[in-house]
Design a protein around this nucleic acid. Sequence first.
DNA 1: CAATAATTGCACTTCCGTTGCATGAAACAA
DNA 2: TTGTTTCATGCAACGGAAGTGCAATTATTG
Lengths: 138, 138
Amino acid sequence: MTEIEKTLENKGVRPTAMRILIYKYLAEKEVAIALTDMENAFSKADRTTLYRTLKTFEEKRIVHQIDDGTNISKYALCEPGCNCEMEQDLHLHFHCDNCDETVCLTEHKIPHINLPDGYVAENANLVIKGICDKCSGQ
Amino acid sequence: MTEIEKTLENKGVRPTAMRILIYKYLAEKEVAIALTDMENAFSKADRTTLYRTLKTFEEKRIVHQIDDGTNISKYALCEPGCNCEMEQDLHLHFHCDNCDETVCLTEHKIPHINLPDGYVAENANLVIKGICDKCSGQ
DNA sequence: CAATAATTGCACTTCCGTTGCATGAAACAA
DNA sequence: TTGTTTCATGCAACGGAAGTGCAATTATTG
Ligand SMILES: [Mn+2]
Ligand SMILES: [Mn+2]
Ligand SMILES: [Zn+2]
Ligand SMILES: [Zn+2]
């Protein structure tokens, strides 16, 4: 039983062949992945299967969904031991307007914001847009 | 010539009857407005006209588009003298998970974030999700 | 007035996300 | 092992929202 299989089982997901492939794919990419990206990468698999796999992974906290402002949902593996719901785990995301890629900046947490009276914060999403390190030529 | 007509002309938009109505509608709401909201409010007008009016308003800096994570574009009037592009004008937005309304918190600017080397920030979007003042009963 | 330009309305398309239902594979209980 | 149940996958379709081409209407200009 491989590492990935163990990880999936620990998270309560049956490690099917398809799911292991999808997990591997997400692991080797260091950018956030859209459903369409996966369709292209796994032309043999059905779009729905990929979709539902991502949803399952999300439910089981294997991936987190990223809204980068493009109106296309992206996904990335959670950090080991991350708890996506907790405020202290909310890192920011960077979307490059040049290469259109989105990355997790897991070291950069979203700063705490003081809200007006009556507002109760439960979640936060911070996306910075600009030019990424690869595209800025550094 | 009314205040609204003057405002529109100053921004380089011809003040048609339709546009004045739409401007008024946006002005009297203190929440961000989706295209569908406008369709309901102006059942007589065509969806495309409302759509293109919002796009025109956006281009001319009369409204700014808001991405609140619902994947439905919303719009709100810009503050007088605001320059939506400038970083210092980037305020945060609050989306209530209870009433599903999104508001501009124009007083709350997005804090400056230090990015890793090579990353160039050009824009930022910060959305806080939770319970708004009306829904939290304060 | 006629000529021109801008606005509006209608029809249609595309894209992404989502769901219902049938089939196939794996786990389980006898 | 066999039958039963549960879960995963595939196929087909739907829905909402954004966006476009073009014709009709309205406003502006000379
Ligand atoms: Mn992330
Ligand atoms: Mn705003
Ligand atoms: Zn880039
Ligand atoms: Zn509310």
